[in-house]
Design a protein around this nucleic acid. Structure first.
Length: 385
RNA sequence: GCGGGCGUAGUCCAGCCCGGUUUAAGACGCCUCCCUGUCACGGAGGAGAUCGUGGGUUCAAAUCCCAUCGCCCGCG
């Protein structure tokens, strides 16, 4: 993999670039839609490509459970397996340490609003301290004992296991195994976790044999010194690029601030991937901070909840009023869905429980997000951002 | 015409026999919000009926009684 920066903004840290892989070139900044189980839910790979998606990210943990990396290896790798010819990433399973651990126990996401942080619920107020363990998984020095969400059996994934699985899956870019810490983790817990994530990062580098690009992941929670320490450490290692993970504070301003702490320590020449962030109103901010790629379930996940992203904002297409709207989801959008289908029909399909509604919304939302990012790239090119 | 059954939120319906513990329960639908590296048929909240109508019994009636209207089923 090679990364070239074609333009740096004079107004911000935004940059335009090209990420070259064996499966083609990604124009950055770029949204990376989430294909957890080797599919953009509801879409075929050809359809995903038609949404102008340039690169997808699949998930090591879930593919390991189903169908198992051996199946992908026998199929000749994930590209052939899912008939996706463009670049692919795999997430390492580090996020599942959070989402199946403290995230599930405390019912919080990695972005928590101020109300939740000081919530009335005693469970929410209780911070995660050194020695705390999630209910269903055990985090140890060398890795994590999970319980399979599918059949409950125990499985162990550490840095060595994650890399071995990711090598068999065969994506172009893979990630180091990390612990994504929860927003409720206190300073000591986060610091301790960070040391572990750094140890794991070194092991990932050491055990990787393939020619896949490997990104190290910066953690450190909401704490400035930990974030910069982590960024310095990950930058000092021989990674091909950087992932930025973990929580990002409880409001949007803080997120930009935190990304500044991190990006300031990272090499300019290597690509930066922001993990799991990408609400529409986050995109310009994170790109201005200097993020090159970012993955997010929002366009696809919200589609499956009946939400269409449009220039008029988020539309809940389940609402009855849309049964009377004989117009496209977004009048300015030229995606296949907007050219061929109207709100009344999509609304009807949703209300009738028809799966095609979810496909149409997924397709449109991805087009909308990809166009949105394309416009940001154009603005950087014109020197407006 | 006679006999029987039913009539409770937009819809389906619980409660009625043994009147008060019901500020009438639930499901679906509707509305709002939430779901940022897991989760189509998900989470949290909200609005909405004074119980067909009229009268009676009672301290108290969706619940008992009478009448009446409407629908349904039998028999003529």
């Amino acid at each position: 993999m090679q990364f070239h920066i074609s333009k740096k903004s004079k107004l911000s840290n935004a940059r335009l670039g090209f990420l070259e892989t064996n499966h083609g070139v990604v124009e950055t900044p770029c949204l990376v839609p989430v294909a957890t189980q080797g599919v953009i839910k509801t879409l075929t790979s050809e359809e995903a490509e038609q949404t102008k998606s340039q690169m997808l990210i699949a998930n090591t943990f879930w593919l390991h459970l189903k169908p198992g990396e051996k199946i992908l290896e026998k199929a000749g790798g994930i590209h052939k397996f899912m008939n996706w010819k463009k670049p692919l990433m795999t997430d390492s399973g580090g996020f599942q340490v959070f989402s199946l651990g403290f995230g599930q126990d405390l019912n919080v996401g990695k972005i928590m609003n101020a109300k939740d942080r000081m919530g009335s619920d005693a469970d929410l107020r209780a911070e995660i301290k050194i020695g705390s363990q999630p209910k269903k998984i055990k985090i140890r020095q060398d890795g994590v004992f999970f319980r399979s969400p599918i059949d409950g059996r125990e499985l162990f994934i550490g840095p060595k296991e994650s890399i071995a699985i990711q090598e068999k899956i065969g994506a172009d870019i893979i990630f180091a195994f990390d612990e994504c810490t929860a927003p409720l983790a206190d300073y000591e817990y986060t610091k301790n976790s960070l040391l572990k994530t750094h140890e794991w990062a070194k092991i990932c580098l050491k055990v990787k044999k393939s020619k896949q690009a490997l990104y190290g992941i910066v953690q450190g929670g909401r704490f400035k010194d930990l974030r910069t320490e982590s960024a310095k450490f990950i930058a000092s290692q021989d990674f091909d690029g950087f992932g930025i993970g973990g929580e990002f504070g409880n409001d949007k301003k803080i997120m930009s601030q935190m990304l500044h702490w991190v990006v300031g320590e990272l090499s300019e020449k290597k690509p930066r991937h922001l993990l799991g962030i990408g609400q529409l109103d986050d995109l310009e901010k994170i790109i201005k901070v200097g993020v090159d790629t970012f993955d997010c379930t929002v366009p696809t996940h919200y589609a499956r909840r009946g939400i269409a992203f449009t220039s008029e904002g988020k539309l809940n297409m389940k609402q009855v009023k849309f049964l009377k709207k004989r117009e496209p989801l977004d009048t300015g959008c030229v995606c296949n869905v907007c050219l061929n289908y109207k709100k009344d029909y999509i609304c009807h399909l949703l209300r009738a429980g028809e799966l095609t509604a979810l496909k149409l919304l997924t397709f449109h939302n991805l087009c909308y997000f990809n166009n949105f990012v394309e416009e940001i790239r154009a603005k950087i090119k014109k020197g407006e951002i």
